[in-house]
Simulated scan of single mutants.
Amino acid sequence: MTYQDILVHVDEHPSSKPRAAAAAALAARLNARLTGVFLKSEFLRDAMVAESLAYMPPDALQALIEEEAAARLQASEAARGIFEAEARRAGANSDWLVVDGRDQELISCARRFDLTVFPPIAKVSLSLNDISAAAVALGSGGPVLVIPESGAPPALAERVVVAWKGSRESARALRDAWPLLSQAKEVHVLIVSPRGEGGPDGLLQRHLENHGLKANLIVDRSHDASAGQILRDHVAALKADLVVMGVYGRPRLQELVLGGVSHDLLSDPPCALLISH
């Protein structure tokens, strides 16, 4: 498996630059095509919740619509400038998309790519709507590379921690991460097991070796910290620049329900996260 098509969310804010740079560097390294995506708001759909608009004179409403359209175009062009500058700097082949900023539109788009690069929470430009990386991972059927606001090193995935618990989600995340794991200098597989289950796994070790990986298996039986904190501690001690983990949870109505470790790390990522469901 490899990543041939990579999608990255970019908006008009400077905080998009480290994410665009990380995605462009990865695309250039893997010889993949990179597509930047801007999430646009629909003014009438978003704004008509304000009842006062219904009483505006037609000419005033038209002027407001045109002003908002110009602001959306300006934001989109600013985002495109950030994206294209980073793609050129990295030497990555690139495309540009503008899609509706509703969750399902973006998730549907992400299903057409091998990897989506996303912030923990993406704000839709000029809108109150936002979309979480967890929602994209739960809905898209593919891996999501979450880049924290501080960015990621150009040689991302030199030191990787795989959070393993033997579940379907863990196995899916491991498989989705092969293109990055195969290039890593160090791979550490962490099993958090306070009650002693899930010790050193010979089949897992052999599976990794069959993929050319000599991974270090770590079993942490700590009782005095949450699994999320234990994972954070190992990331810091190992100086890891990527965590591979399954996302546990489901979207219910309009509220996203996540498992404890997923919520912990996605709310404040200690480094880049490769998440999958």
Rank of each mutant, 00 (worst) to 15 (best):
Leu266Tyr: 04
Leu274His: 09
Ala240Tyr: 10
Ala237Met: 09
Val261Pro: 00
Ala272Lys: 02
Arg221Pro: 01
Asp268Lys: 12
Val243Gln: 00
Lys239Gln: 14
Arg252Lys: 10
Leu242Arg: 05
Leu256Pro: 02
Ala272Leu: 07
Ala225Tyr: 05
Val261Lys: 00
Arg232Phe: 03
Leu258His: 01
Gly259Trp: 08
Ser276Met: 10
Asp233Ala: 13
Leu274Trp: 05
Leu231His: 00
Ala236Lys: 14
Ala236Tyr: 07
Gly249Asn: 10
Asp224Asn: 15
Pro269Gln: 14
Pro269Thr: 12
Ile230Gln: 14
Ile275Phe: 01
Gly260Arg: 15
Ser262Lys: 04
Cys271Pro: 01
Ala236Trp: 07
Leu266Lys: 11
Gly259Leu: 10
Leu253Ile: 03
Gly249Ser: 13
Ser267Cys: 13
Asp233Met: 07
Leu253Met: 09
Gly246Trp: 07
Leu253Val: 06
Gly249Tyr: 05
Val247Phe: 07
Leu231Val: 01
Asp268Trp: 04
Cys271Trp: 04
Val244Lys: 04
Ala240Ile: 07
Asp264Ile: 11
Pro270Asn: 14
Arg232Ser: 14
His223Arg: 11
Ala236Glu: 14
Pro251Ala: 11
Val244Met: 10
His263Ile: 05
Pro270Thr: 05
Leu256Gly: 07
Ala227Arg: 11
Ser267Ile: 01
Asp224Gln: 13
Val257Tyr: 07
Ala227Ile: 04
Asp233Ser: 14
His223Trp: 12
Leu274Cys: 14
Asp233Trp: 02
Ala225Met: 13
Val235Asp: 03
Gly259Tyr: 09
Ala227Gln: 06
Val235Phe: 08
Asp233Tyr: 02
Val247Met: 12
Arg221Lys: 11
Val244Cys: 07
Val243Gly: 01
Gly246Asp: 13
Gly249Ile: 07
Asp268Asn: 15
Ser276Pro: 09
Lys239Met: 07
Asp264Val: 13
Ala237Val: 02
Leu265Asp: 00
Leu258Glu: 00
Ala272Asp: 08
Gly260Pro: 09
His234Lys: 09
Cys271Arg: 00
Leu238Ile: 11
Ala237Thr: 06
Leu242Pro: 02
Val257Ala: 14
Val261Cys: 02
Gly259Asp: 03
Glu255Met: 13
Gly246His: 10
Tyr248Pro: 01
Asp241Cys: 06
Ala227Leu: 04
Ser262Ala: 15
Lys239Phe: 08
Asp264Gln: 10
Val261Ile: 11
Gly246Ala: 11
Gln254Lys: 12
Val247Ser: 14
Val261Asn: 00
Val235Ala: 07
Arg221Ser: 15
Leu274Ser: 12
Met245Ala: 11
Gln229Gly: 03
Gly249Phe: 06
Ala227His: 12
Asp268Gly: 13
Gly259His: 10
Leu231Gly: 02
Ala240His: 10
Leu231Tyr: 01
Gly228Gln: 08
Gln229Ala: 12
Gln254Asp: 15
Pro270Trp: 14
Leu253Ala: 09
Asp241Trp: 12
Arg252Leu: 14
Leu238Asp: 06
Gln254Met: 09
Gln229Leu: 11
Arg232Thr: 12
Leu238Trp: 06
Asp224Lys: 15
